[in-house]
Design a protein around this nucleic acid. Structure first.
Length: 871
RNA sequence: GGGGGAUUAGCUCAGCUGGCUAGAGCGCUUGCCUGGCAGGCAAGAGGUCACCGGUUCGACUCCGGUAUUCUCCA
């Protein structure tokens, strides 16, 4: 069976069991601070398990793209070395939210594998949780055991410990026992030698887990205790690539038709072959895996960058480039050429790959380019380190610096050292790395207390679209402590006018007012697992009373103007540049807006002007806001609303329309475009290959901008005697200035010549040395010029010049190089010794030195004593 | 968010421990030479040494801050 069919058979199977089939959520997570990427099929349903939101369907099934590269599940460095680890993979899953439980989950899993997929029953093993004797004191999962006994021979049922058979998504949150299904795909001969049962959960590449059925029945609290969940859920996950391996009768995920087209392409592009040399095999697997992870992330709108999720993507891409560089001898960008075949094979199930193909290629190519440059630079630096090194071990700290500051991969360093017969001080490197980690951790340490729940109000309504002020009651709160912000309280209300940060728009600020007039400031508002969390410095004294919640109106109004302007800008760009323009990021603050979009070249001045005019024309039109709340997704799309890739939308969406601009948007907007007042682009530039950024201002900020530039202009005009053409005036002033400068220069040159002439005449010859000590009326630079000029006229010159400037004394001494060499004279000693008379010190080079001092009265004395050096 | 590095001519970069009248290669301008292959020779223009402040007789160089950017950690 082809992988495409396996995927659709799975979805079809559960559709028949009354499951709603939903689309994969984006792989990059945007509204959960605890997680950067979707790392399990259940992520998009987390809020249902936590009970923050009521699910619309009790049964759901899907295929979810996942990425495991950081945090608890970190497989990155394993990928490629074996045949079954991946960064990105698909997770097939079926869910029950308070609906069916263990009985159906077990029976259906078995039915799908044995009847739909036709997998031999004798090759399957199942595991059941054995219970635990630790603090949790959990019982054996007898319920699951009995259910399995009905369909599987007991010899194929095994017991698993807490590590393998008790699933937890993190330190806190829902959890429960699980049953795994493993499959033994070894040859008959090998099966005869060792029983499959003894190899389950033993990292055998051909006895692998393919499906995990999790039975969520507990909630883990911050203090580590478990409490029973009111409604029990089922969460299952089956590795798609592994299932394909079993179904296609091959021994490795990389031999399934999910990967073979990519591998063939790598072989062609890099002129290598898979299956001969293990080092090459590893490199090819790394590249085949990573190109998927990176391409999907970019399609989800996450570009490689140097922070957060973007940094993880960059690291994955660089790891692949590195393997190519070392083992496939690729010294030019090549990964971007794989996007084509990837989009051909997976574009059907994931259309974002097809529509974003050009962008994905551009971004990857650009990254490859810059990393190859980093490698080049690193190779040079490593060469210098090696040639300056004594002994045959390289200091670990040096290697760490190379890695930390210049981004040169440590394994490449080790490899190169090995080739040259040197060793790396790995301990020193590890120590330095640990120090770096400790620094980062202590800087970002954050501790959260358990929520104090005051009432069980499930619906936390957002009323901020209509109200900026309303009475609220506290539902729950907790204290969080971090090094950066100190102690803060997170507050959740039954309803709130505060907009939580999202869709690029910043969270609202404002305050809470108690009945007695006490005020608590709300510093920021964010969304976490579909709850609106308000950040405050203090906790109200009486948490039970009703508060007046007031949003900072000025900031909100300005932000709204910028948000609406962002929509109009988006429309303008698509209208003027073309429909290839897609939003790639957006930041809406009260002071400015920032909009990133896909476009291939720099905008011309004319285009920028046209965009500005387009937006301002719509502002002049004073288009009213037409808001649709709870519009069915399908209907919104039919109306022409723009949905963004990498965003998660529900079935009912909110549409925002101003004239012809319609977007799906949860943000807040002006009542009519006239409120924006004016739109002004401040800058346009590139953020990545194929991505441009526009920064702009509106309303008060635009007023301020014009006020300021107008003020400057009037001041300039004022200075130019109120001319009505300041540009012409300044141009002619500049020309005149340049002319005058030249004239002054030549005059000064003449003057210096005369001065030099005079001074040359004053020189007395003492013992064959041309000597002169004199006070002149010049600054330090002038004296230097003069000295060097005179020095070029005389070969045996001893020149001491002094000057007085702003109550300070300056001495400078020039001694021709011949004298320095032959007579053992040094200008440095001269100025140091004579400097005493002016209460100062100095230095320089043997043939020219200067000294400064606080006592101009001593200049005469210093000049008088100069002669002693030549007599 | 935290650490480290970088910012010098249009471009790519030197400039050690504070004192060199801030340099090189490429590019540019001008002139001359020349049957070519990045033509040769000569002359020249081009610098707020990122910005602000401090230390010092003296800062491209040292210290603090800001901006931009690279990089590592989270």
């Amino acid at each position: 069976m082809k992988s495409q069919e396996i995927r659709s058979e799975f979805l079809e199977f559960f559709k028949k069991k009354q499951h709603k089939i939903v689309a994969s959520a984006p792989m990059v997570i945007k509204d959960d601070p605890t997680l950067m990427f979707t790392n399990a099929g259940m992520n998009q349903f987390k809020e249902f398990f936590l009970g923050n939101t009521e699910p619309k369907y009790a049964r759901i099934a899907d295929t979810q793209k996942c990425l495991r590269v950081s945090g608890k599940h970190n497989d990155l460095e394993e990928v490629g070395k074996d045949t079954y680890h991946h960064t990105m993979f698909e997770m097939l899953g079926n869910w029950s939210f308070g609906d069916y439980f263990k009985k159906e989950a077990i029976a259906w899993a078995w039915e799908f594998l044995t009847e739909v997929c036709g997998i031999d029953r004798d090759t399957l093993y199942v595991t059941v949780f054995e219970g635990s004797n630790d603090a949790d004191n959990l019982e054996k999962d007898v319920e699951a055991l009995n259910l399995w006994k009905e369909i599987v021979p007991e010899s194929q049922i095994l017991f698993g410990n807490k590590k393998d058979n008790f699933w937890e998504m993190g330190d806190q949150g829902p959890c429960g026992p699980c049953s795994e299904i493993h499959v033994d795909i070894r040859s008959a001969a090998e099966k005869a030698k060792i029983s499959g049962a003894s190899l389950v959960n033993n990292d055998h590449p051909q006895v692998v887990e393919i499906w995990n059925l999790v039975f969520m029945q507990y909630n883990r609290k911050a203090n580590g205790q478990l409490e029973s969940l009111p409604a029990k859920h089922v969460d299952t996950g089956m590795g798609f690539e592994r299932l394909c391996m079993v179904m296609q009768g091959v021994q490795s995920n990389y031999d399934t038709d999910v990967f073979t087209p990519i591998i063939r392409e790598i072989e062609t592009i890099t002129n290598s072959s898979y299956g001969k040399d293990e080092k090459v095999n590893i490199a090819i697997r790394v590249i085949a895996d990573h190109i998927r992870a990176v391409s999907f992330s970019i399609a989800d709108g996450q570009l490689p960058s140097n922070t957060g999720a973007g940094y993880v993507i960059r690291r994955i891409l660089r790891r692949a480039i590195r393997y190519g560089f070392t083992f496939l001898d690729t010294k030019e960008p090549f990964m971007f050429r794989l996007v084509n075949v990837l989009s051909d094979t997976m574009g059907k199930a994931f259309p974002e790959l097809k529509s974003q193909k050009q962008l994905i290629e551009n971004v990857i190519k650009e990254e490859e380019h810059s990393f190859l440059k980093t490698l080049d630079q690193g190779l040079v630096l490593l060469d210098t380190i090696i040639s300056n090194n004594k002994g045959n071990q390289i200091d670990g700290r040096k290697a760490f610096e190379l890695y930390d500051t210049y981004g040169f991969p440590i394994d490449l360093t080790a490899l190169i050292l090995q080739e040259r017969g040197l060793t790396l001080d790995e301990k020193g490197f590890d120590v330095a790395m640990q120090e770096q980690k400790d620094r980062s951790r202590s800087a970002s340490e954050i501790s959260k207390e358990d929520w104090t729940v005051l009432s069980k109000d499930l619906e936390q309504e957002f009323v901020g679209y209509d109200l900026l002020e309303t009475n609220v009651k506290l539902v729950k709160y907790r204290k969080v402590t971090s090094k950066k912000d100190g102690e803060q309280y997170q507050l959740v209300f039954n309803l709130t006018p505060f907009y939580p940060e999202g869709g690029g728009q910043v969270g609202d600020k404002g305050y809470l007012e108690a009945a007695n007039g006490d005020v608590i400031y709300i510093l920021d508002t964010k969304k976490e697992n579909n709850e609106i969390i308000h950040f405050a410095k203090n906790l109200p004294k009486n948490t039970a009373e009703t508060f007046k919640a007031v949003v900072d109106e000025k900031q909100r109004r300005r932000t709204e103007a910028n948000h609406t302007a962002t929509h109009l800008l988006h429309q303008a760009l698509r209208e003027i540049l073309g429909t290839h323009v897609e939003q790639k990021g957006s930041a809406v603050h009260s002071k400015y807006l920032r909009f990133d979009f896909s476009h291939f070249s720099k905008l011309t001045t004319d285009e920028l002007k046209a965009v500005e005019n387009f937006v301002n024309a719509r502002i002049d039109g004073n288009l009213p806001l037409e808001e649709g709340r709870n519009v069915p997704m399908q209907k919104a799309i039919e109306q022409g609303a723009m949905a963004l890739f990498g965003e998660k939308y529900g079935d009912a969406v909110r549409t925002i329309r101003f004239g012809q601009s319609i977007e799906l948007c949860g943000g807040t907007h002006v009542k009519a475009t006239g409120d924006i007042w004016h739109f002004k682009i401040k800058s346009e530039g590139a953020v990545a290959s194929g991505i441009r950024r526009i920064e702009a201002i509106t309303s008060d900020a635009a007023k301020e901008f014009y006020f300021e530039s107008n003020k400057t202009l009037s001041e300039v005009k004022d200075l130019l005697n109120n001319t009505n053409d300041p540009v012409k005036m300044v141009t002619s002033l500049q020309e005149e200035n340049a002319k005058l400068k030249k004239e002054i220069e030549s005059l000064l040159r003449d003057k210096a010549k005369n001065l030099i002439g005079d001074l040359l005449n004053e020189i007395e010859t003492i013992n064959g040395i041309d000597f002169l000590a004199k006070k002149v009326d010049l600054d330090a630079a002038g004296i230097k010029d003069l000295s060097f000029e005179m020095g070029s006229n005389k070969d045996n010159l001893f020149l001491l010049l002094a000057a007085e400037n702003e109550d300070k004394a300056l001495l400078s001494c020039y001694i021709s190089k011949e004298l320095v060499a032959n007579k053992d004279l040094s200008a440095v000693t001269v100025v140091r010794e004579l400097g005493k008379h002016i209460q100062g010190g100095g230095g320089g080079q043997p043939f020219f030195a200067t000294a400064g001092g606080k006592n101009p009265g001593g200049i005469a004395e210093a000049l008088n004593n100069a002669k002693s050096y030549v007599v």
